[in-house]
Design a protein around this nucleic acid. Structure first.
Length: 506
RNA sequence: GGGCGCGUAGCUCAAUGGCAGAGCAGCGGCCUUUUAAGCCGUUUGUUGAGGGUUCGACCCCCUCCGCGCUCACCA
């Protein structure tokens, strides 16, 4: 049973009064001829011609109102912007102006018809000749008006604040904060620009299963569910990789998918349990070609979304114009930590070297060499990669799906793109040798067993596909939400997700 | 999961052991070009929940709930 606040009770009272007067508070249809900005633009054009009038019917949500006895002003907001309405008893009668003042509240949807004019203070305004209620708002939207502190010195803008409430009631957040609507328009532009770019480069967009009998392509815990009729457990995908690469076997040479991945892991400013991923696979290309395509694609997206390849992110000015900086993993770690990983070919050696150089910053001594390299990367190198940077040549044992560098058994042809100190994308020359792949899967299974973690299942069907023959190819994956964060200057993934994962209410 | 912090009116926030407040919103009144409208008057509280200490608790203690930051985890 809904508990109404005192303010809501007053509005419900008004609703009853309207119905008693035979006025429909939620009429079925609206008749709009002009968007707010369109009406203003047309008027400004017509002003140049003597005696020309602009007649308009507008519709929107009431965001402010000022009653002054025999005249009233209000601002409505529609999908375009804001427009001021002017009500006067001369055109409307005293009773109608009072009706407006008494029965209409902030947040109500209204339709107003009239003639455009310019007020004494110069604002282009609709002089209302007729109006009707389109939808009554029962719950007041969070206050959005400015507030004056004593002394008149401190002016605050009280809007809907607080991350939790804004995320939980995104509808109210959007209704009250236009810049939030803008963020999600930019996000839509981003996704569209990525599609356009890949389509223009002859990649085929596909949709592969979200509900999978086995999961793979990344090291993350999955969400598990159950299919009753088939009597088997199923998983929400943690990546698209193994399905998209099956398509390479099927002679589709360039393929991509944009969609949702699900990982049953921690939540943070850059992690949400479901997130949008872009992956593409490109036959006959290697990781260096993928690198070039990546910087072109992201630069294109930045330009489409923000109008420039120069993007402000917090205190940083990021330049996405190719070519991006390239840092070789061994050199980058040597430069930032003073440790040459090439000189320490076992986990034991590497651990000793780290301990000797940085006694206060050591990884778990029982972990693998690759994870220690990853530790050095996160601890020393990552924070230095603010401008878009490709970090390349990764340890083999943390890259089970990447191809080794010829002549270097410890290193694979893999790169990650970094921006503002965090990982944006991950790519490699894909492993296409089915026997090597099987070996890697088995090794990985051992590592997991050793860590006493959940075992990653071996995907026999994927190996079967590979045995038919897979062309050499380069593959790529990117967290679209993270790119959205960077391009909209938001520092939490929740700000670029309409409905981020939250704990259940009550 | 660990650490730190927050939770007070519809909204944004005060009140550090002694009568729970302000601005905005709301309600009533005045006002025919306002836009942070103005002026006069006025309503609104399970101080997240439960327990404890105390003559007295928003304040101190305990438990729980929710949220934020951070660490850990996270190819």
């Amino acid at each position: 049973m809904t508990e109404y606040s005192s303010l809501e009770k007053i509005r419900l009272q008004k609703l009853e009064e309207l119905r008693a007067e035979g006025i429909e508070a939620y009429p079925t249809r609206a008749t709009r001829t002009h968007m707010s900005l369109q009406a203003i633009a047309e008027f400004e054009e017509a002003e140049k011609v003597e005696g020309k009038q602009v007649h308009a019917i507008v519709a929107g949500r009431i965001r402010a109102s000022r009653a002054m006895g025999k005249v009233s002003f209000a601002h409505i907001e529609d999908g375009d912007g804001k427009l001021q309405l002017f009500f006067r008893i001369n055109e409307l009668t005293q009773a109608r102006v009072e009706f407006f003042n008494r029965m209409f509240d902030l947040g109500d949807f209204i339709q107003a018809e009239g003639v455009m004019f310019r007020t004494k203070t110069g604002e282009v305004t609709l002089h209302v000749h007729d109006f009707k209620l389109l939808a009554k708002s029962i719950s007041p939207l969070p206050a959005d008006k400015d507030v004056t502190q004593e002394d008149g010195t401190v002016i605050r803008f009280a809007a809907l604040e607080g991350h939790e409430l804004r995320a939980r009631q995104r509808y109210a957040d959007l209704a009250v904060n236009p810049e939030v609507r803008e963020t999600f328009r930019k996000r839509a532009k981003l996704v569209k620009s990525l599609r356009t770019f890949l389509d223009d480069h002859n990649f085929l967009e596909v949709e592969t299963p979200i509900l999978q009998p086995l999961y793979g392509g990344a090291a993350a815990r999955p969400f598990t569910t159950h299919h009753n009729e088939l009597a088997q457990d199923m998983y929400l995908r943690i990546s698209f990789e193994l399905y998209l690469k099956r398509l390479l076997v099927g002679n589709i040479e360039r393929v991509y998918e944009i969609g949702r991945d699900f990982r049953n892991e921690g939540v943070s400013f850059k992690h949400n349990p479901e997130f949008t991923q872009l992956e593409f696979y490109w036959a006959y290309a290697d990781y260096l070609q993928v690198m070039e395509l990546t910087e072109q694609m992201v630069a294109y997206a930045a330009e489409q979304v923000t109008g420039s390849t120069k993007v402000t992110f917090g205190e940083h000015e990021l330049e996405f114009k190719p070519p991006w900086k390239r840092v070789e993993m061994r050199e980058g770690i040597l430069e930032t930590s003073g440790i040459d990983i090439a000189e320490h070919k076992t986990a034991e050696d590497l651990f000793k070297a780290i301990k000797a150089k940085h006694p206060n910053k050591t990884p778990d001594p029982k972990t693998t060499r690759g994870k220690m390299v990853d530790f050095l990367l996160g601890e020393f190198l990552e924070p230095t990669m603010i401008q878009p940077t490709f970090l390349y040549n990764y340890p083999r044992d943390i890259s089970p799906l990447a191809k080794s560098i010829p002549g270097d058994p410890l290193t694979v042809e893999r790169f990650e793109g970094y921006v503002a100190g965090f990982e944006l994308c991950n790519a490699f020359t894909e492993l296409n040798d089915p026997l090597d792949q099987e070996q890697r899967f088995l090794e990985m299974g051992r590592d997991y067993a050793a860590d006493d973690e959940e075992n990653t299942p071996l995907d026999e069907d994927y190996l079967r596909a590979m045995r038919y023959g897979m062309p050499p190819n380069g593959g790529f994956g990117m967290g679209v939400d993270r790119l959205a964060m960077v391009l909209t200057n938001k520092h939490s993934i929740r700000e670029v997700l309409l409905f981020p994962a939250l704990r259940k209410e009550e």
